[in-house]
Design a protein around this nucleic acid. Structure first.
Length: 305
DNA sequence: TAGCAGGAAAATC
DNA sequence: GATTTTCCTGCT
C-alpha cells in the first residue's frame, strides 16, 4: 500500500528517527524501514512530501500523521522553547525534529532495556526479543517481527529472556510485562492525567511493592514523553546531565555540578533528578520535552566532532 | 544520601 | 586486547 503524506509544517524524518526516541527504524538506501503497529512502515522524505509504503492496509496517512505527530504546531513549539542561545542553536541545527507517538507498552519495555546501554545495543536487544517472541511477517521478501505483547513476555522464563542478551534486565522486563499483562498499569489514566500525576501513577506502589520494578524517574519520563504525550517530561540521561552542567550551570545545584565535574559520572539520586528536571521544566516551559530532544541531539553530535 | 552491583556490548585507548 | 563507558535502577 503506497501513499503520500503532505507535510504542512516543518518536519525532518532523518533527525526524528536518529534522535534516540525509537529503536525499530533502520535506513536502507533512500528509505527508512520501521516496524510500527504490527507492520512495516517504509518512508522517504522528499521536500514537503512524505512518501510512504505500508505492509498492511491498516496503516494509512492518518496513522502516519498521528505517529509522527504532524499535527503539532512545531513552529510554535520551537519558538516557545527557544529561551536562550544554546537551545536556539540546537533548534537551528536539528530543525524539523519531532517527538513521535509510540505504542505505550513497547515504549515502556524498550526503555526498561535501555539502562546502562547505548543505542545500537538497545536496538539489538529489542530486535532479539521481537525475533523470539514477536509475530513474524513478510515484506519485500524480508522477514520482520512485531513487538510481542506483554502476555507473551510474561509467560516466558527470565532465563529464556536472558537468551536475548538482556543480562540483568531480563527479570525486570519479565516483571514489567507481568504487571502490564495483569492490568496493573492504567495507560489510559496515565495518558489523560497531567504530567505530575501521570508520573506518580507510573512510579507508584501497590500493596507496598513497586508496580514497575526497573522503572525509575528517567524511564518513566521517557515513557511519558514518547508515548503518552506529556510534553513537559524532561528525561535526564548522562548526555543531558553533562550538557546541562556545561551550558546551564545556573539550573543545576552546585553540589551536583561539582560532583559531575569531579568524577564525570553523571548518576543522579532520585532527589537530584527530581529537582533538576523541575528546574529544567521551569526554564523551558510546557514543551520542555521537545527542548530535551534537541539538546540531546546537540550533546551527542558535539561529542563526535 | 552515598556507594555499589548488575551483564554485556560498544566505544575508546 | 584491555579498559572504559554505556539514554539507570535497586539495594544496602
Amino acid at each position: 500500500m503506497e501513499f503520500t503524506v503532505p507535510l504542512g509544517s516543518p518536519f525532518s524524518l532523518e533527525h526524528t528517527l536518529v534522535s534516540g526516541q525509537t529503536f525499530r527504524w533502520a535506513k536502507r538506501g533512500d528509505w527508512w524501514y520501521g516496524v510500527v503497529g504490527g507492520g512495516v512502515l517504509k518512508a522517504k522524505q522528499e521536500g514537503d512530501l512524505l512518501k510512504c509504503e505500508s505492509s498492511s492496509d491498516a496503516f494509512r496517512a492518518p496513522g502516519v500523521s498521528d505517529y509522527f505527530r504532524l499535527g503539532d504546531d512545531l513552529e510554535h513549539v520551537l519558538a516557545s522553547i527557544s529561551k536562550d542561545a544554546t537551545i536556539t542553536r540546537a533548534v537551528e541545527r536539528f530543525y524539523g525534529l519531532r517527538l513521535i507517538r509510540q505504542d505505550r507498552w513497547e515504549c515502556l519495555a524498550s526503555f526498561v532495556l535501555a539502562t546502562n546501554a547505548n543505542i545500537p545495543r538497545i536496538a539489538k536487544m529489542v530486535e532479539a526479543v521481537c525475533r523470539r517472541y514477536g509475530e513474524p511477517f513478510e515484506f519485500e521478501g524480508e522477514t520482520y517481527h512485531s513487538f510481542p505483547g506483554p502476555d507473551a513476555l510474561a509467560r516466558t522464563g527470565a532465563a529464556d529472556l536472558r537468551g536475548c542478551g538482556l543480562g540483568y534486565r531480563a527479570p525486570f522486563l519479565k516483571k514489567v510485562a507481568s504487571s502490564v499483562a495483569r492490568g496493573d498499569v492504567d495507560f489510559d489514566a496515565v495518558t489523560s492525567l497531567p504530567y505530575e500525576e501521570a508520573r506518580g501513577l507510573l512510579l507508584k506502589e501497590l500493596f507496598g511493592e513497586k508496580v514497575l520494578l526497573g522503572v525509575g524517574p528517567k524511564v518513566a519520563d521517557c515513557v511519558l514523553l514518547y508515548s503518552c504525550g506529556k510534553d513537559e517530561a524532561f528525561p535526564i540521561d548522562v548526555w543531558i546531565a553533562r550538557a546541562v552542567a556545561r551550558s546551564y550551570p545556573r539550573l543545576m545545584a552546585k553540589g551536583l555540578r561539582e560532583r559531575l565535574k569531579r568524577d564525570g559520572k553523571a548518576r543522579l539520586g532520585a532527589g537530584e533528578y527530581a529537582r533538576l528536571s523541575a528546574s529544567l521544566r521551569r526554564h523551558f516551559g510546557r514543551y520542555a520535552g521537545y527542548a530535551q530532544q534537541y539538546l540531546y541531539m546537540a550533546a551527542r553530535s558535539e561529542e563526535l566532532s
